[in-house]
């Protein structure tokens, strides 16, 4: 007799993703899908895909989806949740999408305490358009539009989105995670699931910032990219929980 020890989550479709080899977008998709499946809410979920490398996420998640304009996913999700409070609503957004063009939308969705969950992919770069500088690009990091490396005198400083959002009362759950090692993947999954639980309990807004790689635009192999993430991103964007108001309750 054989037993099933691992099976693909019901939360993802059978479509082959278009992500580059070694890109961690795929792992994060799986964690979101598994969380929704395990919580038994897949059939109630409406997701919002961004503009960015995850623009086609609506083909990959096996739930109802909206594709949103660049940066507007939190506003779209607000509209969905207000219209259908009984549904589970999430946005999946990159750092250009969320922290640059959509900075107002994410801040106000969090401030209003919208009962939605945001999965925020921080890869310190604009992936889809070819490696331009993002608001999260590190000082000195090279990008297509910062060929000599990000110079704070010209381009200012990286935005720590989670720290910023954690100051807002409406944000009930804020955690930064990474998917660079199996242990971190497990932690990331736990955080994502918890963020959805916060939504299900009606507490308010939840966001999980996931440090992610972009081997293609960082100009590295998949392994080098993971190492670069650990060495350069983690010190600037420390992992950990920044907000979980009612943690003691369960």
């Amino acid at each position: 007799m054989s037993t099933v020890v691992f099976k693909k989550t019901e939360g993802l479709t059978d479509k082959t993703t278009h992500y580059c080899p070694g890109c961690t977008h795929g792992i994060i998709h799986r964690l979101v899908a598994e969380s929704l499946e395990e919580l038994g809410v897949l059939g109630d979920t409406i997701g919002v895909a961004p503009v960015g490398c995850a623009v086609l996420a609506y083909k990959y998640f096996k739930c109802d989806m909206h594709q949103a304009a660049h940066g507007r996913a939190p506003a779209v999700a607000t509209g969905i949740k207000r219209a259908r409070p009984e549904n589970v609503v999430f946005t999946y957004q990159g750092d250009g999408d969320l922290a640059s063009i959509g900075a107002a939308e994410i801040v106000h969705a969090a401030a209003r305490g919208e009962k939605i969950t945001t999965i925020f992919i921080n890869n310190a770069i604009y992936g889809m358009t070819g490696g331009q500088m993002a608001p999260t690009t590190l000082i000195g990091q090279k990008a297509a539009t910062a060929p000599l490396g990000r110079d704070p005198k010209l381009a200012g400083y990286p935005i720590k989105v989670s720290e910023m959002l954690a100051t807002l009362e409406g944000a009930k759950f804020v955690e930064r995670v990474s998917v660079d090692t199996p242990i971190n993947v497990r932690k990331a999954k736990k955080a994502i699931k918890r963020a959805f639980e916060i939504q299900l309990s009606g507490e308010g807004f939840g966001i999980v910032e996931v440090l992610s790689t972009c081997p293609t635009n960082w100009g590295m192999s998949a392994i080098e990219a993971l190492e670069w993430l650990r060495k350069n991103m983690m010190p600037k964007y420390p992992l950990g929980n920044l907000r979980d108001d009612n943690k003691g309750d369960n």
Partner: peptide
Amino acid sequence: VAAINMVYGAGGCGV
């Protein structure tokens, strides 16, 4: 900008 995108969300779910 946000308002019209909220419309996109609510309208898309048939309300």
